[in-house]
Design a protein around this nucleic acid. Sequence first.
DNA 1: AGCATTGCCTACCGGTTGGTAGACAGATAG
DNA 2: CTATCTGTCTACCAACCGGTAGGCAATGCT
Lengths: 210, 210
Amino acid sequence: MPSDGSTSTSDVRSRLLREATRLFAAKGFEGTSLKDISEAVGIRKPSLLYHFPSKDLLRQSVLEQMLARWNEVLPNLLRAATSGVGQFDAVVEETVGFFVEDPDRARLLVREALDRPAHISRLIGEYVRPWAIIVCNYIRKGQQQGRVHADVDPESYVAQIINLMISSIATFQCVGDVTGPGLSPQQRLSRHIRELCRVAKSSLFLPTAN
Amino acid sequence: MPSDGSTSTSDVRSRLLREATRLFAAKGFEGTSLKDISEAVGIRKPSLLYHFPSKDLLRQSVLEQMLARWNEVLPNLLRAATSGVGQFDAVVEETVGFFVEDPDRARLLVREALDRPAHISRLIGEYVRPWAIIVCNYIRKGQQQGRVHADVDPESYVAQIINLMISSIATFQCVGDVTGPGLSPQQRLSRHIRELCRVAKSSLFLPTAN
DNA sequence: AGCATTGCCTACCGGTTGGTAGACAGATAG
DNA sequence: CTATCTGTCTACCAACCGGTAGGCAATGCT
């Protein structure tokens, strides 16, 4: 242990989680070896297995860490959703912000949805159902009040928009190329997000309420 | 070789491609072994390597086969896009149909976008740029004619919609669970697609032109 | 001081991976 | 009939995988 005190037990653990997140997101669970992760942190493989007794427990920990963070921001999202008219933008923007803040979260979720769809179904029931129900109710109320298009299918709409928010961030680095080069990545991302929010909003509200 | 003539060289090759497509889509490239694929076809691993000299060549062949099929239907899509007003629905529906017809196509593309973003960028430039440019021009013309919302960012819009069409089919089996159970998978898929098309259309056109 | 715990290490394990070598059966051509 | 080619097989390889055993230095508690 160096005398500068720069390393502690929990530090190594959190660095392992961070590198595992990064590598699982970039190369996938099967495409990442414990050697890759441990070497990215600067320790040997058995030391990693001291902190996380199996590769699968490491995967679970990576997901749990991300979902714990989601649970931290969820109250803000739900508050935004119920704080009155015109706050729909805030919900979408804050939700997108959660994934823009760390796109690996989006990549991890998309990979998990492909690799273990049953697991993601369970997580959706646990973590996004509350979000979805509130937004659905908001939409139905809006339909009654004539602010929201009558032909919106609330459940499907919510599923589409969540899917769009996550996957467009997950694959942003390449879908940005659809219409050719030009612009800095930052500019493209900002336009991308603005259009995402516009699509979400404009496909929901009637222009008169906009 | 059995005397019933049920197997020929090209038959084995195409069955290998089919099983490889299915397994790569379901478990990913790294998560699928040559043993898995060869056994799914009923031959041994070295026989697979006789047809496809390396695992990576097999991956390339799988992608090429899918993109060749895309190139077959692309002319229809482009024709629909340019055949006049009101045909926007047809473009979206036919493009979605390409992925609904075989959802493994969508899963393969999403996986490739995550695993090898640079490769997908290149493919986008080659295979979807023509599609995107035509749709962008259609949008800009619509904006000049006042049929399309003025604040649509055509490039970003197209990127979002393509992304939505592909990823919502790729992960349909779990995003369908966003709002809870009920309905048969078939019914859910049909509602899902209808809402997808509605979002695409309603976020683009002004209601007066709808 | 004595002793247990923590956290890392080297060395090793059985199993699996992508890939090769080479034999062999059946069809085909001269 | 002989020679070649095609497509499959068994047997094998080195490399790597996730995981274990056990040693060892530092820390901390009594």
